[in-house]
């Protein structure tokens, strides 16, 4: 088990290295010199050189990569070209919005999908199944940012229950949660639709298995069979999807933050892009990739725990 864990960790580290190289190389391809761009047309060559030194733009390609990657490891994400402050500080401000938003949305996703999937699978072919399948079919087709706009229109413009956007900060947790509620709902709905359908499919597959018949033959009711035997076996495909969904939620959050004017990592990336503050884009992207890879790793661990067959294989 320990050895399997080590192998996984090594492959995790490798993925991160490859990902960082890809991101670094891609952003190096951007034409133009950020220092010259920042100082404008009339800048003196020696001022530009000084700024380049300050921004860590000196040295060869490999040298700069090592400096950046090494910095990331120690929490030094570089210095923003625009604001001249450490990127880490910017990130620290913004992550307080994005991380709770993603988690909130994930929570909603599971809370909606679990009962809906269970209901549809156990009432297969009945009205409630058709209802869930129809609603989720629609839920998948709705772009989350459009859904977000509709929510804004309904609750902020028409009903005036909430403000259309912005974030009051965590000093008032109630208000902060309220501000995150509409974005989280908008993010969660399509993902919950997907998850509910996956859960239904996985449950229906497991309900067809021989061991379900065995459980019924020993006198378990249909409901007990579903909960005790089918649900845990259906967990593996569901966990896999849930892991993938985290990545979608992160990406979705970037767009949704724009709809609601939330000062999160997504806004930060967009500001970085429009202001050509590439070090911000580079470091924040890397951070997001790290989050996704780490979650994938956690999911793999989770289903090793859920399935003893994998535990055995992992131990070998």
């Amino acid at each position: 088990m320990a050895r399997a864990l080590l192998t996984r960790l090594i492959s995790l580290a490798l993925s991160l290295v490859v990902a960082s190289v890809v991101i670094f190389v891609m952003l190096q391809a951007v034409p133009g010199d950020p220092a010259a761009f920042m100082l404008g047309l009339n800048a003196q060559p020696d001022t530009i050189a000084a700024l380049r030194a300050e921004l860590g733009l000196q040295g060869g390609f490999v040298q700069r990569y090592i400096a950046w990657a090494g910095g990331m490891l120690t929490g030094d994400f570089g210095t923003s070209y625009t604001y001249r402050v450490p990127v880490a500080d910017l990130v620290a401000d913004r992550i307080g919005v994005s991380a709770p938003l993603a988690l909130y949305a994930l929570l909603l996703t599971v809370l909606i999908a679990l009962p809906a999937g269970l209901l549809a699978a156990t009432r297969r072919g009945q009205a409630s199944d058709w209802g869930v399948m129809g609603a989720t079919q629609l839920g998948i087709a709705v772009p989350n940012f459009w859904f977000a706009m509709l929510l804004v229109f309904l609750f902020a413009v028409k009903l005036r229950w909430v403000s259309a956007g912005g974030f009051p900060g965590w000093s008032d947790p109630g208000a902060a949660l309220l501000a995150l509620t509409l974005p989280a709902v908008a993010l969660a709905l399509p993902q919950a639709s997907i998850l509910a359908r996956v859960l239904r499919g996985a449950l229906i597959d497991t309900l067809d298995q021989d061991y379900i018949r065995t459980a019924r033959a020993k006198g378990l009711s249909r409901r007990a069979t579903t909960i005790r035997h089918a649900l845990r076996n259906a967990a593996i495909p569901v966990l896999t999807i849930l892991g993938l969904q985290f990545s979608f939620l992160l990406a979705g959050a970037i767009i949704i933050e724009n709809v609601f004017f939330l000062p999160g990592l997504g806004r930060l990336i967009f500001q970085g892009i429009t202001q050509r503050d590439l070090i911000v884009v580079q470091s924040v992207t890397m951070l997001l990739v790290f989050a996704v890879i780490a979650v994938t790793f956690a999911v793999e661990l989770a289903y090793t725990l859920a399935d003893p067959r994998l535990r055995r294989r992992a131990a070998r």
Binding site: Y211, G219, H229, D307
Partner: peptide, 28 residues
């Protein structure tokens, strides 16, 4: 009725099937 069957299956009547490889829950 199905409810009454629950008291009979396993209690009065037990059953085993052809495929032992798939007849048991793999995660229990």
């Amino acid at each position: 009725a199905e409810r009454q069957w629950l008291g009979i299956r396993g209690n009065d009547i037990g059953m085993i099937f052809q495929e032992p490889m798939t007849a048991l829950n793999p995660v229990q």
